[in-house]
Write a protein that binds this DNA or RNA. Structure first.
Lengths: 192, 192
DNA sequence: GGCAGAATGTGATGTACATCACGCAGGCAC
DNA sequence: GTGCCTGCGTGATGTACATCACATTCTGCC
């Protein structure tokens, strides 16, 4: 399926746009291809775009002072990703994004998003709902962090996204769960 | 300051409404008073409203199977709170809300929010931005959870909301930080 | 093929936390 | 006053994790 159709079906789930309106909406997106391992946003960068994933898998991550990495999101097809803090506040990126596999995305600039949101009420509606889903997911993950131990969170992750198991290396799964790769390795043995 | 004026100034920060539009917007809110300790949403309830806090302090919390409580949010004046998962998906509440102090709020039903969002583009704009701020805050807290130890998170919380220190009992602060009250007590001694 | 680097498993040890147990102080009802 | 409940401090012990160290397997690359 081509990019335009993927985005169209994605939007149609929450907003009602005429074909003409959608064409206008779509005209603000720029397609982009990345290779496995390529950086999309590096720490400190000025962040101008958010990204709608068409194919492949990206990760959004934070590196602390001890060079330890924490993964905020694995971004899969039809997901959106960016450093939204840096994007909205026009500050340097604190969150980096790179590609776990080759990937194709559609880029939308902050300026263009705000423009189409003000021009098309239904676009604003769509972005409200998208953000709302993100908020609920984030809150759920926070609760899971407080309430569950690593093993339960690991199983929760694999139940939700079984494709991750074969797609991404285990140390990245550990970085998502917030534990060391050694601990995850031991858990994994016990759990088999 | 009266309720209407508090809400008006709050909205004005992100959306542009004429006086007439704001009057219409405001007409959908119902004022409500609560006493200290009173429940606003109990687990399992049908959730119809979200709440804009005018005065006092509420807490939104989750109780797990071991009857352990985790606090998702201390809701202070000009904050919004609800079990948004239950509100949007029309499922029974998994998150409860009660009052740490006497409190006054404005109630907005899910139905009315969607109605005014579809009628007033600027209302939709406001709620998109509000949700976005919530999302960024939640993501920041998640990162803090993964990256920082309890002591750092405790200090972060008190820096951000110094008023909490005298307003809420320490075991609730522990429930927000996701540690036992004993651990917080020991930390607190060390930190003095 | 053969090598380098990445990914993974596993043991030994240290530590930040939970949990259980108990004591104590302040507020409130009667 | 006495009793009771809530909040808070603190010791003893257990545990889930991190960290360091090293071995092993896999994978792309020349």
């Amino acid at each position: 399926m081509e990019a335009k159709e993927i985005l169209k079906q994605h939007i149609a789930k929450t907003a009602t746009l005429t074909d003409e309106q959608f064409d206008y909406f779509f005209s603000h997106f720029k397609p982009q291809s990345y290779k496995k391992g390529q950086m999309v946003i590096s720490e400190g960068d000025k962040v101008d775009n958010e990204y709608f994933v068409l194919s492949g898998c990206l990760k959004a991550f934070f590196i602390n002072d001890d060079i330890k990495m924490y993964i905020l999101q694995f971004a899969m097809p039809t997901w959106w990703t960016s450093d939204y803090g840096a994007l909205y506040n026009q500050t340097g990126a604190t969150i980096s994004i790179d590609c776990i596999t080759d990937a194709e995305v559609l880029c939308l600039s902050n300026h263009d998003r705000e423009k189409i949101c003000s021009e098309l009420h239904q676009a604003e509606h769509f972005f409200r709902w998208r953000t709302n889903r993100g908020y609920l997911a984030s809150q759920k993950r926070l609760l899971s962090f407080m309430n569950n131990d690593t093993k339960a969170r690991y199983e929760e992750l694999l139940t939700l996204y079984p494709q991750l198991y074969n797609l991404v290396p285990k140390h990245l799964i550990a970085a998502y769960l917030g534990v060391s790769r050694e601990t995850l390795s031991r858990l994994y043995q016990a759990h088999k």
